[in-house]
Design a protein around this nucleic acid. Sequence first.
RNA 1: GGCCCUGUCGUCUAGUGGCCUAGGACGGAGCCCUCUCACGGCUUAAACCCGGGUUCGAAUCCCGGCAGGGUCACCA
Length: 485
Amino acid sequence: MRPPMKPRLRFAPSPTGYLHIGGARTALFNWLYARKHGGTFVLRIEDTDQERSTKESLQAILDGLTWLGIDWDEGPGKEGAHGPYFQMQKLAHYAKVAQQLIDTGWAYRDYSTEEELAAARKAFAAEKGLKEGDDLRSAGFKFSSPWREKKDTSDKPALIRFKMPRREGRFGFDDQVLGRIEKPYDDFDDFVIMRSDGVPLYNFGCVIDDHDMAITHVARGQEHINSTFAQLMLYEALGWTPPLFAHIPLIFAQDNSKLSKRKHPEADVMRHKANGILPHALINFIARLGWSHGNEEIFTRDDLIQKFDFEHVGKSQGVWNPEKLTATNKHWLKNTEPLQLAMALLPYLQAAGVPDAACDAKLELGVRAFNERSATLVEMAEKLKPYYAKGVTIDGAAAAKHLGPEGKALLAKAKTELEALKEWTAAIIDPVVMVVATAANVKAGAVAQPIRVAATGGTASPGIGVTLELLGREETLHRIDAALR
RNA sequence: GGCCCUGUCGUCUAGUGGCCUAGGACGGAGCCCUCUCACGGCUUAAACCCGGGUUCGAAUCCCGGCAGGGUCACCA
């Protein structure tokens, strides 16, 4: 038995905008499959739409993937044996293949002009009695090029069309998630594979590249199902073996419309970074949106690699659920090594206005205190910020409730006890509350709250011991003095 | 409109003919823990789109409706 071929998968974005959540998930699924089977993950840039492609978009996509930890074995910055990985660098090659298709009768040069096409549309509309703005497609408009049967090899600018064979019956493929999908042949018209300026169109470039790059599995959004049929014909015409296809369901926004860049800010992967979501939390969340493994919800990176398969990718569209993303983020905030979390938090802390924060013992303590009290890194930074400040503004309502005469008397007693401590750690500080409370015959809360308000300015904080340790002895006593005055 | 895909709690989903008086997670409600806030624990409400078959038996198979979505560019 010969060893199974190592799979090669790819993610092929067009650099026409930031990394979209849907794209990120497509990339993730391909990446997971490649990693699981010890295969190769290729990043290919489909930059043939010169109108919209930009360098900034390319960088944004690269940044997005990098932030998520989705690394590629071949692609930009990682030249491999199957390059180039930018389509615009392969124009001559595409032209050669197109010519081959013309030579074998599978394609033809079409000299129709934009004007002729427009005229055809207009004539159709008139015949059907359609008004301006009506959808010609739903009315059944099809353009049949007069050049399909003509022989002309002049040098005039021409686009190249694939010559769809006139056949009876149906054709299709076995989708890895949807199962068998078929369509009638006559549902297809000739389609453009090369623009008149020599730049290939999506279906054409995609097929050639997937072949050149020896891609074995193509996982992409369900919106591509129809192009898969066109591509299948191209494979037949070229005599190539197509890869296996897996069409994954689309992601919708909460308003039940397709998650779009314009309407939905959450569609931008990097937006989540700005919002303080951990990259792995986002990975965990989008993996579960459309894929499942029994009742499991939480997966480490290795879990995902080990457990992912196309068989358990769902068939129906999923709706973006911000609450669940937050919940997933909270989970990973609580379950990430404090030191690692501290490093991730540092930039957020600096952005929050704590320039002197460093990845030290204090930050680690702070992270341990607030990782289960924050939903995002942004929130955690905001909560930690007062612990790096000198002095604090006390909330009026909190003072009124806890720093009355009684509260102040208890606070003063606590202060005496605190000053006497030889060490300043949570374990040593904590008992002070009970000592004072017992002596005064009051509940622990009657002592803890005045201390908390004095130290933090508010009524909510981690345990008194941790809170004061984090603040430091000197700052704590200063704040208590200030509150007592 | 043609063609194609899909249809389990509000949302993500488990479920591949009997284990389903349908399970988990998020969100909701309530309780417990407690120095506050959290965390954690427990309890609870909430779904098989509809109608026909097939079968001893259907969320699961078949057919028909209905609903949602995709696609029909010299975009990808």
